[in-house]
Design a binder for these strands. Structure first.
Lengths: 212, 212
DNA sequence: TTTTCAACTACATATAGGTGTAGTAGTTTT
DNA sequence: AAAACTACTACACCTATATGTAGTTGAAAA
């Protein structure tokens, strides 16, 4: 015998809020844990109610936004499942939400039956999102879109080793050239990447290059 | 009027291969582009056939594995949609596949109707995967599971700035302490992260920490 | 209240790193 | 063949980092 899934709703728009409330109250297997029109109220109350799943809007007319609210909630309740439910599917908001700890991201246009399925999915360890959002997420893993600066083979080799935390001397020994030569290559790498220190080069290389 | 979706299958197991073949040939809206029992044959032929979607196994008894095959195919056909279809859903294989350029990852136990849906989903820009895999992918974005070393507030602040490529002096100016103090904090950060250079610290921080 | 600890200052010293300049050998382009 | 480019070597000079040691202060834990 399985228990009902308790769900909290954080949404500023009254119509949507009430709609979700009615839906959840009238759907078999669900119990409404709380409905909040502001992130602040959600933060105060959700930890006491300890729901299974939270449906969270992103945009609020005032106060803390939904993404920061997710961060705060996840800080104290790391196992809480939060599903973003929003009208905007801009890249940045999606990624920020996922980074903040949301485990799914759905459109407000999602039909109610699908929403019900999504909530069940979350409870079962799933990560519901629309196809397009899933694709965005997957694309961010795909490293076939980031080559950028035209480094020579040697320079790539050196940069790769910089990114492994090696010193000039270690790199020199590993590619069988003098430390002076390594120094020279690094100078040129810095020019191409437009940086002027090892750590900046490493940061730039890791953040948008082909490393390991 | 929309066209049929052409699908190629790369799979070493004859039974599964034939099963997929029969299914695709008998399903409305699909046309079989090619069936390959090895990755090598797939690499030779797929570029000429130019299918819409490729179903790719990971494990092959000999020769190149499915992940490397994806890399090769995506190198020459960056827009090709590849769906991994495998019995193993180990973390590593999933991430390697996505990095290589696959756009979805399904279990071989997936029912045929669901598989048909998944292929359509891929064509429509989706990224089909099972709930559990989606969750794994999403989790990798969630930075709430990597706090690890117990750095003090100040140390985190300094580390964050190191990760922005700043020098000792710049950090000192920014947090209104002397360069010596920054030096001191960095010493302790290195001890805690078990590194001994700025770039190593940055690498470690970026690769498994909470930075920005 | 004594201890512990984060945050800080300070000094010393050796090594690593950043930058400019210059020249050689081998390839590829024109 | 001349020009352009990659890979390399070499020297010089100065700055940034790494590491050790040592002491002060205020707040929190024992």
């Amino acid at each position: 015998m399985e228990n009902k899934i308790s769900v909290a709703v954080v949404e500023d728009n009254r119509d949507i809020r009430e709609g979700l409330k009615i839906m959840l109250e009238s759907t078999e297997g669900f119990v409404l844990s709380g409905v909040y029109e502001s992130t602040e109220k959600a933060i105060q109350d959700i930890p006491h109610k300890n729901p299974d799943v939270v449906l969270m809007d992103i945009m609020f007319p005032s106060g803390m936004n939904g993404i920061d609210c997710v961060k705060v909630l996840k800080d104290t309740m790391p196992d809480l499942d939060i599903l973003m439910l929003t009208s905007y599917s801009e890249d940045d908001l999606v990624f920020q939400s996922l980074k903040a700890g949301a485990c799914g991201y759905l459109d407000k246009n999602t039909s109610l039956p699908k929403l019900v399925e999504a909530i069940k999915d979350v409870k079962n360890g799933g990560a519901p999102m629309t196809s397009l959002i899933a694709r965005m997420v997957v694309k961010s893993f795909n490293q076939h879109h980031s080559q950028e600066p035209d480094l020579t083979r040697r320079e790539k080799e050196v940069l790769e080793q910089l990114c492994q935390g090696k010193s000039y001397k270690m790199i020199a020994d590993s590619i069988f050239v003098s430390e002076d030569t390594v120094r020279f290559h690094i100078k040129k790498i810095y020019k191409k990447l437009q940086v002027n220190s090892k750590s900046e080069a490493v940061i730039k290389a890791i953040k948008n290059n082909l490393i390991g």
